[in-house]
């Protein structure tokens, strides 16, 4: 450090009030958070592989057995092809829904406190976390995607479809991770969070179109599935990933629901995030 005297901190662009400068400040802060988080992933990628085990089992065991029974009407698709995007979405959900644990860990130390006294806006901090979760999901998605390919699912490989799958996986991860962060902000302790996490994942998974079509469901379950964001993620993935699959809800609606969900959750999480330091 030089003896620069009581340096006035750089008048930040973010404070200058111009919308464009604010936006660039927001983006820079979000990227700072995201890249710090992703450094950790780069350093310890083992979790990505351990997390690939479960989808592999679903596809190999559950998928193979149910393919034989033909108990589930999946139209022109084989059951394995039908459920592969569902299992991809499931792996995204199960990984993202426990993202809040890391945030509680950061609170139990004092990392959240440090972030919250920085001049970055709360929404940029939360957005940074969402972006990091999106990238984590993407890396994991690649693994499940390859497994599906190896199992002989007729996967669409044209660039636009693959890109669409990537975007959907990114958005799904960001959405459920932000939801998880929101829950963490409310419950604040690891024990309560684990309880709630367990409680949420299975209903979210079964009340969706991941492993059976909505048309098979009794009305009450169908009503739940139709407000479950996982349904829209699965629909987008299935349509974009599997040859011959037909969208039920419409891909534009799928992305619109996920986009709106992410924005709403980020706003709510940014509002509650400071509670973690109180």
């Amino acid at each position: 450090m030089t003896s620069a005297g009581p340096a006035t901190p750089p008048r930040a662009l973010a404070e200058s009030g111009k919308p464009l400068a604010r936006l660039s400040g927001f983006a820079r802060h979000a990227m700072a958070i995201a890249s710090a988080d992703l450094l950790k992933l780069k350093r310890d990628p083992t979790e990505l592989f351990t997390r690939a085990v479960q989808p592999l089992l679903w596809l190999l065991v559950f998928g193979q057995v149910f393919s034989r029974t033909r108990a589930i009407p999946t139209g022109a698709l084989s059951y394995l092809a039908f459920m592969a995007p569902g299992v991809l979405a499931q792996s995204v959900l199960f990984a993202a829904i426990f993202y809040g644990i890391a945030v509680i860990w950061e609170r139990d130390l004092g990392i959240v406190h440090k972030l919250l006294v920085a001049p970055a806006s709360r929404s940029s901090l939360v957005t940074g976390k969402a972006i990091a979760a999106g990238v984590r999901g993407l890396v994991q998605g690649v693994i499940v995607f390859i497994i599906a390919l190896l199992l002989g699912v007729h996967v669409r490989l044209d660039p636009l479809s693959v890109l669409g799958v990537g975007v959907a996986v990114f958005m799904g991860s960001a959405l459920f991770a932000t939801f998880s962060l929101l829950v963490a902000c409310v419950v604040k302790t690891r024990e309560r969070f684990m309880g709630i996490g367990q409680l949420l994942t299975m209903p979210l998974f079964f009340a969706s179109n991941a492993i059976y079509p909505i048309t098979m469901m009794p009305n009450w379950l169908r009503a739940i599935a139709e407000v479950n964001p996982l349904t829209y993620l699965v629909d987008a993935l299935r349509t974009l990933m599997v040859m011959g699959a037909v969208s039920v809800t419409g891909v534009p609606l799928d992305f619109a629901v996920m986009g709106a969900g992410i924005v709403g959750l980020i706003v709510a999480a940014a509002w509650l995030y400071p509670d973690l330091a109180r």
Binding site: L39, D44, D108, L109, G110, I111, H113, K114
Partner: peptide, 13 residues
């Protein structure tokens, strides 16, 4: 600037 009573540096960085 603030150094909290708890630990605020990130151990995995």
């Amino acid at each position: 600037g603030y150094v909290p009573q708890l630990l605020s540096a990130d151990g995995s960085l």
